[in-house]
Computed example of a mutant assay.
Amino acid sequence: MKSLHNRVNKELLKKQLQESNEERLTLSFYHYYHIANPNFFRNHLFVIFQKVGVLGRIYVAKEGINAQISIPAARKDEFKETLDQIIFLRNLRLNYAIEDDGKSFFKLTIKAKNKILADGLADDAFDVTKKGVHVDAAKFNELASSDKTVVLDMRNHYESEVGHFENAITPDVETFRESLPIIEEMLEDKKDHNLLMYCTGGIRCEKASAYYKSKGFENVFQLEGGIIEYARQVKNKNLENKFIGKNFVFDERMGERISEDVIAKCHQCGNDCDVHVNCANDACHILFIQCDECGKRYEGCCSIKCKDFINLQEDERNALKTTIKFNGTKFGKGRFQSDLKDEPLEI
């Protein structure tokens, strides 16, 4: 079983990727499907994907598969042939990154989980395969212009903070499972409206569409391929772009620019900025938005406390790190406020 896991040091893998001249393509895909034996399927995937140079993060569960990966550009056709060996993944839509330097992932990680997208609900609460209607970019724009449509962002606050569709509802949540009951209550009197949902690549909308259909919403639509595919279609078909700002992505890049608008602010100084970073203090590691100037001032940290901590000797840090409360001790993701220097990153 050892051969079915990466055993190389993480920092070495990162260094190798950064120094490599190999052209790589970043992409994502998902598919809700009833998988009888996720562990067996996981091991099979690891073997066949490792052979074609796949790097990235893949989750498999009884409800399906969710993958964010990169592949060698020269082996694109070989990868597609490998994917087509799996009957339920044949002719699957692959979402290729908009902005891509190929440095998105540095190792292959495949995990068998209870669900590919945690929703906090029992397995039999609703059927994830009974989804809403998929729409392309043109139809999305048409529906979004109607007074009978509610445009709904199914992502988390730190994602919508840097970019979202015009007039979209952007729930202040940190996880998908939080959003389902909050949105249901919020839209209780709009079950006859068009419910038009979007997310990064489509996986959250797909599950949410099935959930809201089971709750009595009559007209449920989802943006096929998510923001990633929308941006591609807008460019290729010369459509109006209704997305403002940057699309947050869950890899080393942390974002793809969809429009030139910068709608977020540095969490430390309040200047316009939409660049996410993790606090340089590994004992904190909170995700927050930081401009270049504050990055230099705080040495990549979210606070003076963290900056002072990383400048201690290693033995001092090791002795103190479990006794000090940092921003990341309480909060997984940062929120904007006027002055964060030594305060929690929350409103």
Rank of each mutant, 00 (worst) to 15 (best):
K2T: 04
S3H: 14
H5F: 14
E11L: 14
L12E: 15
K14R: 14
Y33R: 01
I35Y: 08
V47F: 11
L55A: 09
I58P: 07
A61W: 09
G64K: 11
A67N: 07
I71H: 12
A74T: 15
K76Y: 14
I86G: 05
A97H: 13
I98M: 06
L108K: 09
K111Q: 14
K111R: 15
K113N: 11
K115D: 08
I116S: 02
L117C: 14
A118E: 13
G120W: 07
K139G: 01
F140G: 05
N141M: 01
E142P: 02
L143D: 05
S146M: 13
D147R: 09
M154D: 08
S160K: 05
V162G: 00
T175H: 08
E178P: 13
M186P: 00
E188Q: 13
E188N: 08
K191S: 09
H193W: 10
E206D: 15
K215G: 07
F217T: 05
N219I: 03
V220M: 10
F221H: 11
E224K: 14
L239I: 07
K246D: 12
N247T: 06
F248L: 10
F250V: 08
R253P: 03
I258Y: 06
S259Q: 12
D272H: 06
V275Q: 12
V275G: 07
C279D: 03
H285C: 03
C291V: 03
C291P: 09
G295C: 09
K296C: 02
C302Q: 07
C302E: 01
I304S: 09
N311V: 00
L312G: 01
L312W: 05
Q313N: 11
R317L: 03
N318V: 00
I324T: 10
I324V: 15
K330C: 01
F331L: 13
K333N: 11
D339V: 12
K341C: 03
D342S: 09
I347F: 10
